[in-house]
Amino acid sequence: LHSTQRQYRVADFARLLYDESLTPAEVIRKWRGEATTAELPDGSASNDKVEEDENFFRKAKNKDEDDEDRLIPQYDYDYLAQKWSDSSNLEQLRQRFATANLMEERHGNEAN
């Protein structure tokens, strides 16, 4: 349903922000244009029907863990290491640093 929608549209966010029928996590997912159906809040696909019998014997997941406040999100450091070792990502990030050579950048843009 939302796959055709443009991601990160600010108008969408303004609409979703105070929509009390959605949890904050759902708001974010919708805004990013990620799939919202067939997915449980913990991110696992809903194939419970098959495993319903097994579910009975499984220990209930402690959802409280997810509900604790974290000021610093839990990062996947392997992923971050990969992301920030990539030279094209670093070049893009360089725009946010004062060391970026603005003259060269402008020159490059003109040439393009």
Binding site: F13, Y18, P24, V27, I28, D69
Partner: peptide
């Protein structure tokens, strides 16, 4: 940044502020 405002805790904060009677946030590009 869009991933800063697009964070669960900030959406929660916007709603909490509204619950306490503050006016809603306006957002634009």
């Amino acid at each position: 940044g869009r991933d800063v405002i697009g964070n669960e805790s900030l959406v929660g904060l916007a709603r909490d502020l509204k619950a306490f009677g503050a006016s809603g946030w306006g957002v634009r590009d």
